[in-house]
């Protein structure tokens, strides 16, 4: 498990910063709810006058802003976006950093099978993502609960957990990219455009009103409106999410097992 521990060690500081930043952002936004809860109706009236396209693009669902979870959902879209970037960084970097920084020569000449190295790296990424979500929940749940007696903890957790799922998807896609790319010179130069591309696809889908486009962006696998209305996820998209992760991780193992690691 030495590779696993080393990956945790090398990413702990960055993960801590990401976790605390996301938690701080979520909490600050939740505190706003307390400040404007009495004016929510007026607030919604203004939003209603937005063209439907703008409403869809911004991602708020009229009629849900009156509850803490519904109000949180609006900002949560952006928390998920940030979380996706963090996850893509971890995924791309797991192997991409080793090959890009030429430390792969060191790591891959050690007495460890490649599948073992990849498995340990992937597990470390998973643990770091779990930790990020635990921190986020541990901070935001008490803050949300403090906003009023009508707080629905179950729904809040259901909503918050979607970040973890989206992160796992992006980490898996990132992992595959890091393994398959010839050389990743800069992790962020890959993860940022990648994540934003998927995000924009989602925005376009919402604007165009084309439902089929939802299959092409992990950001739309967990529809906030649906979750708020039904307190559940859409089974079909859950299966799509699982399929994407399984295929991406499986392909990563297959590609990495046979990958040629070139000098410089």
């Amino acid at each position: 498990m030495n590779v696993f521990l080393q990956e945790l060690r090398s990413q702990r500081r960055s993960t801590l910063i990401w976790s605390l930043s996301l938690a701080a952002f979520g909490s600050l936004y939740l505190l706003l709810f307390g400040a404007i809860r009495n004016d929510i109706s007026a607030f919604e009236d203004v939003l209603k006058n937005f063209p439907p396209v703008a409403q869809a693009a911004l991602g708020f669902v009229i009629g849900t802003l009156k509850t803490v979870s519904g109000f949180y959902a609006f900002a949560f879209t952006y928390i998920v976006l940030c979380g996706a970037i963090q996850a893509a960084n971890l995924g791309v970097g797991a192997i991409g950093r080793e090959i890009g920084g030429s430390t792969a020569d060191f790591l891959l000449t050690k007495p460890r099978a490649r599948w073992s190295i990849l498995a340990q790296k992937a597990l470390a990424v998973l643990v770091l993502l779990v930790a990020t979500n635990v921190v986020l929940l541990a901070v935001t749940i008490p803050v949300a609960a403090a906003q009023g007696p009508d707080f629905d903890a179950g729904l809040f957790v259901l909503l918050s957990a979607t970040m973890f799922f989206v992160q796992v998807i992006f980490a898996s896609l990132g992992l595959l990219y890091g393994v398959a790319a010839k050389k990743v010179k800069s992790v962020v130069a890959v993860s940022l455009p990648g994540v934003f591309a998927f995000y924009i696809v989602g925005l376009l889908g919402a604007v165009v009103g084309e439902d089929a486009i939802r299959y092409f962006t992990p950001f739309k696998y967990f529809d906030i409106g649906y979750i708020l209305k039904n307190a559940a996820y859409e089974t079909g998209f859950c299966l799509v999410a699982v399929a994407v992760v399984v295929v991406a991780v499986g392909a990563s193992f297959a590609v990495f097992a046979k990958k040629d690691v070139q000098a410089l």
Partner: peptide, 19 residues
């Protein structure tokens, strides 16, 4: 390869480690 690697010491021309 992993089994063989136990008994090999390798020094490449350019060394790169975790900075």
């Amino acid at each position: 390869a992993p089994e063989i690697a136990k008994e090999i010491g390798y020094l490449p021309s350019e060394v790169f480690y975790y900075d």
